[in-house]
Simulated assay, not measured.
Amino acid sequence: MTRSLSIAFFGSSLVSSYWNGAATYYRGLLHALARRGHRITFYEPDAYERQSHRDMEDPPWARVVVYPPTEDAVFHALQEADGADIVVKASGVGVFDELLEREVLYLKCERTHVIFWDVDAPATLARVREHPEDPFRPLIPCYDLILTYGGGGPVVHGYSSFGAATCVPIYNGLDPATHFPAPPDPRFAADLSFLGNRLPDREARVEEFFLSAAQSLPEKAFLLAGSGWGDKRMPENVRYLGHLGTGDHNAFNCTARAVLNISRSSMAENGYSPATRVFEAAGAAACIITDNWEGIGEFFEPGEEILVADSGAEVAEILARLTEQEAVRVGARAFARAKKEHTYDRRALQFESLFRSGVPKGAEFAGGMP
């Protein structure tokens, strides 16, 4: 094992999944690192009503520092993080992101590695390509390491083209202590369920893969959960739950005949970007139907461990012929694969291996330019 490391992590939120899809990724990976003896401090802003929508208390395995959404508070948090072995700035903190992306680099020294951890790499790279003046662009070579939520070879190539010293995808996964088979709950009864917040690059794909399928199967029951869909026009056979706390995710995944994964546009176009919820649903032995994206077969075997659709019409076709017995069989195979290959303990080992072999330092940082 790598020596015990102190890790200062600046992210959106560890304790609230409200408008924060990365929460379970952070929890799974950081909990696994803590189990291996590393010391975690998570810095998150008090913003977007997340603290009033907590779905977990401060965990015993991490120190959580909630700071006011002010510039002074950001600098105070950075001062406190100074001296950690690893300082992480995640993408999409939501408050003073540009400031944090620049200022964490002043914490680099011989002892301290500074990492940018991108939980939305395809979108970040597209933004930087389209806007050469983007202030993050000249900072990329200065980070000692770029880690990504996924994205495979395309995001590694993309970050390398902007001068990244090292870029490594660390995929999301399963924490078997958190996501596991649960008894069905009548609140979540449906033939097909989908859980996802309403986002600009997801909405059209939800219309295509979920709402159009519901329209074509009026005899089936569809269930939608996630924030932001309240004013969306939907077929009569779609029931909307609103925000669903993580404590209900297992029952949600276990109750419907099948659950649907719909990738955001940027992730579908890039490929190699399985959503966290794919692994969580597999951990609950759910039968998963997913939209098609390159690289699915590296995680689950199509047709055996996951069902793949190229359109809403194909989702409807799969659902129309899906028996309860077949759904159980597919879910059981996904469950076995996830527990064998896709746990956060395995992801933590990957993270540790980077430091065991020695991470090269990024370019010198001098006020924002490499």
Rank of each mutant, 00 (worst) to 15 (best):
G295N: 03
E44M: 05
S91V: 02
E324C: 06
H113S: 15
V93L: 12
P235K: 08
H342F: 10
D144I: 01
E44D: 14
A23F: 08
Y67E: 15
N197V: 06
E314H: 00
R356A: 08
L244P: 08
R329A: 13
Y48M: 07
D46M: 04
L241P: 03
S4W: 08
A284V: 07
S161P: 14
T178E: 10
L241C: 11
Y25H: 09
Y48P: 04
G312H: 01
P184T: 07
R127M: 14
A121D: 05
P360Q: 07
S13D: 10
F209G: 00
L217R: 14
T24R: 09
T70M: 07
L5T: 00
P274K: 00
P60E: 10
L78F: 01
F252K: 09
E103D: 14
E326D: 10
D72T: 10
G247I: 11
G358C: 13
E314V: 00
K220E: 14
E317C: 11
A190H: 13
G358R: 10
E298W: 01
I115R: 04
I146Q: 03
L145A: 04
S4K: 12
E341I: 02
S17T: 05
E301W: 04
V206Y: 03
T2K: 02
G158H: 02
F75T: 06
Q325W: 05
A34C: 05
N172H: 06
P370I: 04
R202G: 12
E49P: 11
D144P: 02
P68F: 04
P176T: 07
G28N: 02
A258W: 07
S160Y: 01
H53F: 13
F9W: 13
F162I: 09
T112A: 08
S216D: 12
R277Q: 05
R129P: 04
A268Y: 14
Y26R: 07
F188M: 15
D118Q: 06
C167N: 03
G228S: 05
I140L: 13
D58G: 05
F355T: 02
V104D: 15
R63N: 10
H157P: 11
T166D: 10
